[in-house]
Simulated scan of single mutants.
Amino acid sequence: MNEKQLTSVSGYLFMLLAVLCLLGSVGLAFARLGFVLPGIIFLISMILFMGITVINPNEAVVCTFFGDYVGTMKQNGLRWVNPLYVKTKISLRARNLNGQTIKVNDKMGNPIEIAAVVVWQVADTARALFDVDNYVNFVQIQSEAAVRFLASSHAYDNMEDEHETVTLRDNTGQINKFLEQELDERLGQAGVRVTEARISHLAYSPEIAGAMLQRQQATAVVSARKQIVEGAVGMVEMALERLERKGVVQLDEERKAAMVSNLLVVLCGEKSVSPVVNAGTLYT
């Protein structure tokens, strides 16, 4: 079912007529001119009052007539429609859904904790009221299902799979786009539009958090060591090349090996190296 606009008229004139009819019926009753005419005028005033409704900004009124959807009024102010219409108000304002933290396995099977914040609003009032039973509850359940699907479709990070390009931890912007697309597909049935969706909490589950922290630390240490070694090898190559080019000293292969070893110890060591003066030669 798709939303359709319902044309309404200004309710100020009908409000004035309803008040005048009400006062007229009361005056005729006190004048003791019978009960028929005052009763008819009172009934007319009540019918006029029934057709009046107040629509606030970012609010809509869905009208049905004996179970048949007639249309939706979105004009702000005091409006008047057929008094026999059943009117249901629905908010069009943006709402925040602060999802609960849930535990789910990521793509690699690791248990993680994840939560999301979703900003949504009703875009189609007819679908929101008639295509689902309770659109607010529908948004909550489908948002949690979308977060679970997203977490199970991507790895937490790329430590186990180096070829993984999109991870939950490293590609936050792209992950949020995937979450918005998934929510739009799921919530479109309820006439709900998602304006923003973001991961608000992401962490390993407590039972594996310690082990994963150690693995991350080990990976960081290995990566740092790799860069240090690459830089040290480059500096040793540059030193040997400059010594040979300028003819400062002539080194055989064994002395080159000793020099390389000493330089690598100095450059790659975690602590400051204490120099040792060799008063003899390499061979004594």
Rank of each mutant, 00 (worst) to 15 (best):
R255Q: 15
S153M: 03
D157Y: 07
K4N: 13
R198P: 00
K271V: 06
L213P: 00
G247M: 07
L282V: 08
M159F: 12
L20R: 00
E185A: 10
Y135A: 00
E241V: 02
A29D: 05
E237W: 02
E230L: 09
E185C: 05
L6V: 08
E113H: 11
Y156I: 04
A60N: 07
D157M: 01
Y156T: 02
S261N: 15
L37Y: 12
P38A: 05
V233N: 13
R32V: 01
V192L: 04
N56M: 12
I114M: 04
Q100L: 10
A257L: 13
A211N: 11
G27V: 07
R148E: 13
D124W: 09
V9M: 09
I40F: 13
H201G: 05
Y156C: 01
H163V: 07
T7F: 11
E241M: 09
L43N: 01
K89M: 06
D252C: 06
V147I: 12
I228T: 14
T167E: 01
F178N: 04
V26Q: 10
L240R: 04
I141W: 10
F42V: 05
E185Q: 12
V248N: 05
N262D: 14
Y12V: 14
L16C: 12
E144G: 07
F149S: 13
L37E: 14
L23Y: 04
K103H: 08
L202Q: 01
N176L: 05
L202M: 06
E270W: 04
E237I: 06
V248S: 13
G210F: 11
F178I: 06
R32F: 04
K89C: 06
F42A: 15
S261T: 14
I141Q: 15
R169F: 09
E270V: 07
S10E: 09
A258E: 12
G11E: 04
I102C: 03
D68S: 12
N82V: 01
V276P: 01
G24R: 08
K103N: 13
T219C: 11
L267G: 02
S153I: 08
I55R: 04
A145P: 00
P111N: 12
Q100A: 15
V117D: 15
T284A: 14
E162D: 11
Q142K: 14
N262F: 04
I55S: 11
V166H: 01
K177A: 12
G269E: 14
E237T: 11
V54R: 13
G11Q: 05
V117Q: 14
N134A: 06
P275Y: 03
R255L: 14
V147T: 07
V136Y: 05
P111T: 07
A224L: 14
E185T: 10
T167A: 06
K4Q: 15
I228F: 06
G247C: 10
E207D: 15
S153E: 06
Y204S: 03
R93K: 15
V192S: 00
D124H: 10
M235P: 02
R127I: 01
A128D: 00
C268F: 08
M235E: 13
G247H: 07
V277F: 14
L150G: 04
A257E: 13
F138Q: 00
